[in-house]
C-alpha cells in the first residue's frame, strides 16, 4: 500500500505516451485516476471482459458511439458526461434497460491530468444518475497533435424485456408526438463554447441519462408507446424526417408547441441557426397512441427530466401521390417541409 504522499508524488500533471503503454504507468493511471472515479466491483476486477447475467425473457440491446466533442468541456457538461448519457439513451430508446457500459479512453499526450479527472468524474456522476456501471474499459494515449485532448468511446449493453417492440413500422396516422422538454440547448452550448468563446451564455447543455424517464413511460403505457428516438446530432428535424420515411406517413410538428428557451432561441438567431436542427443530448421524442398522450405527459411531468414535457405534433396519413414527409405547421399558420440538415452546422452572418 502506497502512502498518500507517495501517491501524490507519483501523479504527473500531464498524461504521457507511457501512460498508454500497458506497463506500470498505465496501472498507476488506472488505479489512481480511473478506478476511484468510475470503479465498481466488476470494473475493479480489471478482467479482459465483463461477464453479465442476462435475466430470463430478455433480449440484448447493444450500442456503441464515439465522443469527440470540441471543446472537451462546455457549459452543462463535458465529453465524460456525454459518453455515458449518449450510450445510456441509445439503449433506452429501443426499450433496453442499461446493464453495463464499456468505456474506452483515448487521451492525447500532454493532456492535463486534471482534465482527465474532471471528465472521469462526470462520467462517474452520469453513470450513478443512470444507475449503470462502467464494467470494462480501455486506456490509450496518442501522440501530441494526433488527438484533441480526450476522446471517449462508449459501448453499452441493455436488456430488453420480452414484448417491448418500439419500431417506426408501428407508427400510425393519429398517433401523438411528445418531447420531454426544450430543445437545442446542447448543440448551442457546445457551438457557442467553440465558435464564440468570448460570449457568456446562460445556455447549458441538457446532457442527461433518460433511461429512468423512458422506463417510467414504458412501464406505465406499455404498448401505447410505439416509437422513441433521441434527437441528437441532426436535431428534431432529423428525427422527424427520418421517422416520416421509416413509417411511411406524414409527421407533423407544430412550431408553437415546440419548447425552446428564450435565451436559446436568441442565441440561435444570433448564429443564424434553426433550433429544430440543433443537437440535444437529454431529450427524447416519443410517439404514443393519441388516447394515451395525456397519460404519457402526466407520467413524464412527474419526472425531473420531464417537467417541461409537451405534445409537439402528430402523425397523419399521406395524401395520394405524395411521398412520406415531415412538415412544420408554423406559428402564423403556414406549412413547410422539415428536412434533415446536411452536415456540420455553420454560423451564418449575411
Amino acid at each position: 500500500m502506497k502512502t498518500l504522499a507517495h501517491a501524490a508524488l507519483a501523479l504527473p500533471t500531464h498524461i504521457s505516451l507511457a501512460h498508454g503503454g500497458g506497463g506500470q504507468l498505465t496501472d498507476d493511471l488506472i488505479r489512481d485516476t480511473i478506478l476511484p472515479r468510475i470503479g465498481n466491483d466488476t470494473l475493479n476486477e480489471l478482467m479482459d471482459s465483463a461477464i453479465l447475467d442476462v435475466p430470463a425473457g430478455h433480449r440484448i440491446a447493444f450500442s456503441v458511439d464515439g465522443y469527440v466533442v470540441h471543446p472537451t468541456c462546455f457549459p452543462g457538461g463535458d465529453v465524460g458526461r456525454l459518453a455515458i448519457c449518449g450510450t445510456v439513451n441509445d439503449l433506452a430508446v429501443v426499450g433496453g434497460r442499461p446493464a453495463g457500459i464499456a468505456l474506452g479512453v483515448i487521451a492525447e499526450e500532454g493532456c492535463r491530468r486534471d482534465l482527465l479527472e474532471r471528465v472521469l468524474d462526470s462520467a462517474g456522476e452520469a453513470a450513478r444518475e443512470a444507475g449503470v456501471f462502467v464494467v470494462t474499459g480501455d486506456t490509450k494515449v496518442v501522440g501530441r497533435g494526433a488527438g484533441d485532448g480526450i476522446y471517449l468511446t462508449s459501448a453499452g449493453v441493455g436488456f430488453v424485456p420480452h414484448g417491448r417492440n418500439l419500431r417506426a413500422a408501428r407508427v400510425q396516422p393519429g398517433d401523438a408526438i411528445l418531447i420531454n422538454g426544450p430543445i437545442a440547448d446542447h448543440g448551442l452550448s457546445v457551438m457557442l463554447a467553440r465558435e464564440m468563446p468570448e460570449l457568456e451564455s446562460a445556455i447549458e447543455s441538457d446532457a442527461a441519462p433518460l433511461n429512468h424517464l423512458i422506463e417510467d413511460l414504458l412501464s406505465e403505457l406499455r404498448d401505447d408507446v410505439v416509437f422513441l428516438r433521441d434527437p441528437t446530432r441532426s436535431g428534431l428535424a432529423g428525427v422527424g424526417a427520418d421517422l416520416a420515411v421509416a413509417c411511411g406517413h406524414r409527421v407533423v410538428f407544430e412550431e408553437e408547441r415546440i419548447p425552446v428557451r428564450p435565451s436559446t432561441r436568441h442565441a440561435a438567431n444570433l448564429l443564424g441557426l434553426d433550433p429544430l436542427e440543433v443537437a440535444n443530448e437529454g431529450k427524447v421524442v416519443a410517439v404514443v397512441r393519441a388516447t394515451a398522450s395525456d397519460h404519457a405527459l402526466a407520467v413524464w411531468r412527474e419526472h425531473p427530466r420531464g417537467r417541461e414535457a409537451c405534445l409537439i405534433g402528430h402523425v397523419e396519413s399521406v395524401p395520394a401521390q405524395m411521398p412520406p414527409r415531415c412538415e412544420l405547421f408554423t406559428r402564423i399558420g403556414g406549412r413547410r417541409l422539415l428536412a434533415k440538415p446536411y452536415g456540420e452546422q455553420l454560423p451564418r452572418i449575411c
Binding site: 434553426d274 408554423t330 406559428r331 402564423i332 399558420g333 403556414g334 406549412r335 413547410r336
Partner: peptide, 16 residues
C-alpha cells in the same frame, strides 16, 4: 434580401 428569403420559407409563407 437573403434573410427575407429564409424567413419566408422557414415560416411557410408560400403555403399561405
Amino acid at each position: 434580401c437573403g434573410t427575407h428569403t429564409m424567413s419566408i420559407f422557414r415560416s411557410g409563407i408560400p403555403s399561405l
